[in-house]
Nucleic acid binder design. Structure first.
Length: 528
RNA sequence: GGAGAUAUAGCUCAGUUGGUGAGAGCGCGGGAUUCAUAACCCCGAGGUCGGUGGUUCAAAUCCACCUAUCUCCA
């Protein structure tokens, strides 16, 4: 089977990351880990978009070179990925020389193929925002407002990509390939956007206006502007044109392409990823079968409103991870949203999911199970030959959780996958109550039954740790440390079966994996 | 002006291809218990499934229209 190639949007290094950035990368990381657990080879690519006018301008304002400025902002992202256990295999930084060479080679190909042309455009230009304005920017009086500063009319030459030529192909492609975009209903938005006039795409800026970019190989008085620089990272860092560009240290492209999942937010679906991107690929000669698959996720709103700097409701994932741990935050971000839809971020629900579910549910289950095993049996797993309907019911719950989990996870239902794993936690806690090992321990005649109950609990916990491993890698490794049995080499989650813990296995001592957090110790939530 | 999404118990949401008396978690109330991170377990809500009108033997689940909210496009 081909390797599972998964990408995320690359983040613009103009401001530090917020909760939405964290969500997208965690989602990709969970899927990457899950696919590996299914025995699939994975290439997970994420990174940063570092070029462009805003960065150039922000750097000037900060009195820094663009290089230093992007290095500073980029470090916020890499530190967060470290903290959240997001572990990509490839790092796509658009200032990377390897990337620049591929972009130039791609542009040269398109140029040689007649896909690019130069033309002159006359229009109104905002000196403050450094961009051409269209009628859309006019206010109700037909004027350009004061936010644009001084507006001048002038004419400028630029390079254009023959986007319009391929629109008919794209319409047909989207109609005939319902798998191109997940969730499927998003395709309607794209088709709607394609109804307008077929316009070409401006892909350059004169070097006097923008120097922080990749020069056009066939006309060095211009640098490439945005799309061929940013979107092409999915190709360049997967090894596209690697040989002719001398990028020997990148993966081999043929086995990897097409991308199995390109995770993006709904805000950059149209036009960038659903229009420009497939058309770029098509123009480069990629066939319909070589088109990637887009996975469009929703947004985390805050109290029903869009998160924005001006509202002052931007959520900082770094602080949340410091309080709830990387895994605590990963768990919340994965369980409290349905992939593809929006959700509301809530401090209260984050605290609830941590204290009630992780600490009170799973953490406490591990703690009470191991504690009893040590108190009554010296921490030894002893599969006695006793069996009864309680044991059978727990084994059945564990057995039924796996297919439900696999189905959900393979269909991007991470929240449902977690729920499937959680059915074991709930059943195991009820199992303790029903079998009362602490009572059995008082009656020597019940020894065989007691040993079977505690063995069942330890085994069930190991299964839970395996299922939730992609979501909470560090915490689940800790669980298995206490169960004294790590994931074996080449472990396959899809082949998980009862009977992992051997007879006579010695368990380790329990320590809280998710220490309860006292709500009173938290800073009061900033009210909007 | 157009498009998409969403509207289900106090809150956050599940509800496959329409079919036994509509569900989960949290919160709340009651009970039980002690192995455990004041934790875990059991019971309880009777909610016109946004509204109206259709299709059907049968609709939260299909169709039409309407309303509200959110997002995007113009």
């Amino acid at each position: 089977m081909k390797p599972f190639y998964i990408t995320t949007a690359i983040d613009y290094t103009n401001a530090p990351p917020h909760i939405g950035h964290a969500y997208e990368k965690v989602l990709a990381d969970v899927m990457a880990r899950f696919q590996r657990a299914q025995g699939r080879e994975v290439y997970f690519l994420t990174g940063v978009d570092q070029h462009g006018q805003k960065v150039q301008k922000s750097a000037e304002q900060a009195g820094q070179s663009p290089e230093d400025f992007v290095a500073g902002v980029t470090s916020h992202f890499t530190a967060l990925w470290q903290q959240l256990e997001v572990r990509p295999d490839g790092w796509a930084a658009t200032t990377d020389e390897r990337h620049k060479r591929v972009v130039q080679a791609m542009l040269q190909r398109l140029h040689d193929d007649g896909q690019l042309y130069k033309k002159s455009y006359r229009g109104f230009y905002s000196l403050r925002q450094e961009q051409f304005l269209t009628d859309r920017e006019r206010d109700e009086n037909g004027e350009f407002g004061p936010q644009w500063g001084e507006v001048v009319e002038f004419e400028e030459e630029n390079w254009y990509f023959r986007l319009g030529q391929h629109v008919a192909w794209l319409r047909e492609f989207i109609r005939s390939h319902p798998d191109f975009i997940f969730p499927a209903h998003r395709a309607a938005e794209v088709l709607h956007a394609l109804e307008g006039p077929e316009q070409d795409l401006c892909i350059s800026r004169p070097i006097e206006r923008l120097s922080w970019g990749i020069p056009l190989p066939f006309d060095p008085r211009f640098v490439n502007y945005v799309w061929f620089d940013a979107l092409s990272n999915y190709l360049s860092f997967a090894g596209y044109l690697g040989q002719e560009c001398g990028n020997a240290d990148l993966p081999a492209f043929e086995p990897l392409w097409p991308a199995d999942a390109q995770i993006i937010g709904k805000d950059i679906l149209v036009p960038a990823h659903a229009v420009y991107w497939p058309i770029m690929l098509h123009a480069l000669g990629f066939s319909d079968e070589q088109m990637p698959r887009l996975v469009v996720h929703g947004w985390w709103n805050v109290r029903g409103a869009k998160m924005s700097k001006s509202l002052g409701n931007v959520i900082d994932p770094k602080l949340l991870a410091a309080t709830f741990s990387g895994d605590g935050l990963r768990y919340y971000l994965m369980r409290d949203i349905a992939t593809g839809y929006d959700s509301d971020f809530s401090d209260e629900r984050l605290l609830m999911s941590y204290n009630k579910e992780l600490a009170g549910g799973l953490g406490n289950l591990l703690n009470r199970s191991l504690n009893m095993a040590h108190q009554y049996l010296g921490g030894v797993v002893d599969w006695s030959d006793h069996d009864d309907e309680h044991n059978q019911a727990l084994r059945r719950t564990v057995a039924e959780a796996l297919p439900a989990y696999l189905k959900a996870m393979n269909g991007w239902g991470i929240d449902e996958g977690i729920a499937a794993a959680w059915s074991v936690v709930t059943a195991a806690n009820a199992f303790v109550d029903a079998t009362k090992p602490f009572m059995l321990a008082k009656d020597p005649a019940q020894g065989a039954r007691l040993r079977s109950v505690l063995a069942h609990l330890a085994e069930a916990l190991w299964h839970v740790s395996a299922l939730l491993d992609p979501v909470m890698p560090t915490a689940m490794a800790k669980v298995r440390e206490q169960l004294a049995l790590p994931l074996p080499d080449g472990f396959r989650i899809d082949q998980l079966a009862w009977g992992v813990l051997p007879q006579g296995h010695q368990l380790a001592k329990p320590t809280p994996v998710f220490p309860r957090i006292d709500p009173a110790s938290l800073a009061p939530p900033a009210s909007a």
